[in-house]
Nucleic acid binder design. Structure first.
Length: 261
DNA sequence: TACCAGGTAGCGG
DNA sequence: CCGCTACATGGT
């Protein structure tokens, strides 16, 4: 258990910002095989996991510095950043991001959460955390998920994505260091390697780079972001101004447009 | 009940 | 390089 010191931290906003699919409205977060409960600025967890959660919530970084760089003349972006105060780009597991964002394509967020929970319940490990006082299922490891057949995967509501998940699980299970080897590489190298997975296009690759490898220069463009670019930035989005951290800007926009549509 | 969802692959031009 | 379409399923 520990207290969050930074100013820019709002659990409800983070949990509803579409980057993690196992953060509940009740404050319970499941990541990999760990869990915690967030109550305001208190993170309740095993003390042995304090450092894990500090990194998970990216508490080492100062988000007010990014907010200050936003062009005040840009009314839309200023409003978005104000509305999404307390957002942080989480440091999530690359494997978990790869699978969940392959699932995410052409699905709404409640449907994504539902499929992810089904997969965890079927192939994850049942656990109990006495500090948080909950029973939960860990996210399946590549080895665990590699045991799933395409038919079993489809029963989790994956639709045509069943084959994508199956192939990704086989690939990572047979190349256990494939994803960890990417951790220190550049955004471009990571993106290009992710694009080799079947079912991973530019948008999913950018989400995995951003949320799984913390490459904050990645700028995923989904239907919502595209709408904003078309409506408010018809003459071009100022990527140059936000070079190096456009992914954080993107997250404010995504949360803002989705909550106000 | 239609319509849409944090898209991608495969195709034709 | 573009634009177009099929794709399975569930949420609203």
């Amino acid at each position: 258990m520990f207290e969050v010191k930074c100013k820019e931290f709002n659990y409800d906003v983070i949990a509803d910002s579409g980057q993690a699919f196992r953060m509940g409205a009740d404050g319970v977060v499941i990541a990999g095989d760990k869990c915690c409960r967030v109550d305001g600025r208190t993170v309740v967890c095993d003390d042995a996991d304090n450092d894990f959660w500090i990194h998970y919530f990216d508490l080492e970084n100062d988000y007010s510095a990014y907010i200050r760089k936003i062009d005040k003349k840009d009314k839309y972006l200023s409003a978005a950043a104000d509305y999404g105060r307390g957002i942080r780009i989480l440091n999530q597991d690359p494997w978990e991001m790869l699978i969940t964002f392959i699932i995410s394509q052409r699905k709404n967020i409640p449907a994504i959460k539902s499929s992810v929970e089904s997969i965890c319940k079927k192939w994850g490990t049942e656990r109990y955390n006495k500090i948080v006082n909950i029973k939960y299922y860990s996210f399946p490891t590549p080895k665990q998920l590699s045991k799933a057949s395409i038919e079993e995967l489809r029963s989790c509501g994956l639709g045509y994505r069943d084959e994508y998940i199956y192939l990704a699980a086989q690939t990572v299970d047979q190349n256990p260091d494939l994803l960890s080897a990417l951790a220190g590489k550049s955004y471009e190298d990571i993106r290009d390697e992710l694009l080799k997975f079947r079912g991973v296009g530019i948008k999913v690759a950018n989400c995995v780079a951003l949320f799984g490898f913390h490459k904050i220069e990645a700028f995923p463009i989904d239907v919502w972001i595209q709408r904003v670019l078309d409506m408010y930035y018809a003459n071009g989005f100022p990527f140059e101004r936000y070079k190096g951290f456009a992914g954080i800007i993107q997250q404010y926009i995504f949360y803002f447009v989705r909550k106000n549509s």
